[in-house]
């Protein structure tokens, strides 16, 4: 009974909380710009409306156009179930090496989304998909380096126990690196501007240009879950969650997620999207930050 209850609670956290994050980001942006901005719950309204809408499919598209977003959504959900919510709560499923499964489930989501995007034969969506899969090359290296850092710090290769980092220089470097990865993986400024209206310069938004109705809702919801996943991951990779008491840890986790989200909003308010030729430089920087975090952790553990 307890297991079922905790599973439901976890699902609720991931499914229901996730759409809040983009709302908070938009609120922060509006607040910095001195506007009122859309309500924090805007994405919930959007999702509810999209769910009721009709689907329009390109004449060229195969069933994978609809199946892709659904699979991507399910893959992200699967990845979230591997991520622990604080040291006491743990993850739904945890075993040695689950960290690699999480990375590959996110990759599966990427495959499904880009495949669905390519279904339409549109040049715009080709552009978005090409950027998405290419930037992931460096982001993936950064993620591996970050996970290796955590593994070195804790001597464990399971997410449930490896997200108990030590504080210090390594944590600072790791925070910077992972935050950059969060920005690129979730297509935020300075890699992509979700608010722009010029399709040529977009990544994620242009990939889903032809999607509509419930599949589009699945894409938006999946994207927000991915953002939440990364926010939870960043928080737990940096703060020594293990040292807090049970309730304290939950509060710290919530506050951490909030801080990360607000941070994304602030970055978005004060930075412009980078020119595409400068993106690799920033990506390389994030890889190097994670690699140096790894080296410092190594030095510390030796």
């Amino acid at each position: 009974m307890m297991i079922v209850l905790s599973f439901v609670a976890r699902l609720a956290w991931w499914l229901l909380l996730a759409p809040l994050l983009p709302g908070i980001i938009n609120k922060v942006k509006a607040w910095v710009a001195g506007r009122r901005g859309p309500p924090v719950l805007q994405l919930y309204y959007d999702l509810a409306r999209l769910w009721r809408k009709q689907v329009v499919m390109s004449t060229l598209a195969s069933p994978a156009f609809i199946v892709g977003p659904a699979v991507a959504w399910a893959a992200v959900l699967g990845a979230t179930l591997l991520v622990p919510l604080g040291p006491a709560a743990g993850a739904t499923l945890s075993f040695r090496g689950d960290v690699v499964l999480m990375l590959y489930l996110l990759a599966l989501a990427r495959f499904a989304t880009t495949w669905a995007a390519m279904e339409t034969g549109s040049a715009f969506e080709g552009m978005g998909a090409a950027r998405e899969v290419t930037y992931a090359v460096l982001a993936e290296a950064a993620m591996i380096a970050a996970m290796l850092t955590l593994a070195v710090q804790t001597g464990s290769v399971s997410l449930a126990t490896m997200l108990a980092p030590s504080v210090g220089t390594s944590a600072v470097l790791l925070a910077a690196g992972l935050f950059t990865v969060l920005l690129v993986e979730n297509c935020r400024v300075p890699f992509d501007d979700p608010a722009t209206h010029l399709e040529l310069t977009m990544i994620h938004e242009v990939m889903v240009l032809d999607h509509s109705g419930p599949p589009f809702a699945a894409i938006l919801h999946g994207a927000s879950m991915k953002l939440l996943l990364f926010a939870v991951l960043v928080t737990q990779s940096v703060l020594p969650m293990g040292t807090y008491s049970r309730t304290m840890a939950s509060i710290v986790l919530l506050v951490g997620v909030l801080i990360v989200t607000v941070g994304v909003g602030i970055v978005e308010s004060f930075m412009a999207r980078f020119a595409f030729r400068r993106v690799p430089l920033l990506l390389t920087t994030s890889v190097l930050l994670c690699v140096f975090a790894l080296l410092v952790a190594w030095q510390g553990a030796a």
Binding site: V56, S58, T59, L60, V71, A74, A123, A218
Partner: peptide, 25 residues
């Protein structure tokens, strides 16, 4: 799980409401 979700999505979306149109360019 994955094929089930995909199949569910296809049945739900396509069976009743899908409309075909040109790719948006």
């Amino acid at each position: 799980l994955l094929p089930a979700v995909g199949w569910f999505a296809w049945r739900k979306m396509h069976g009743r409401t899908a409309r075909r149109a040109l790719t948006w360019d």
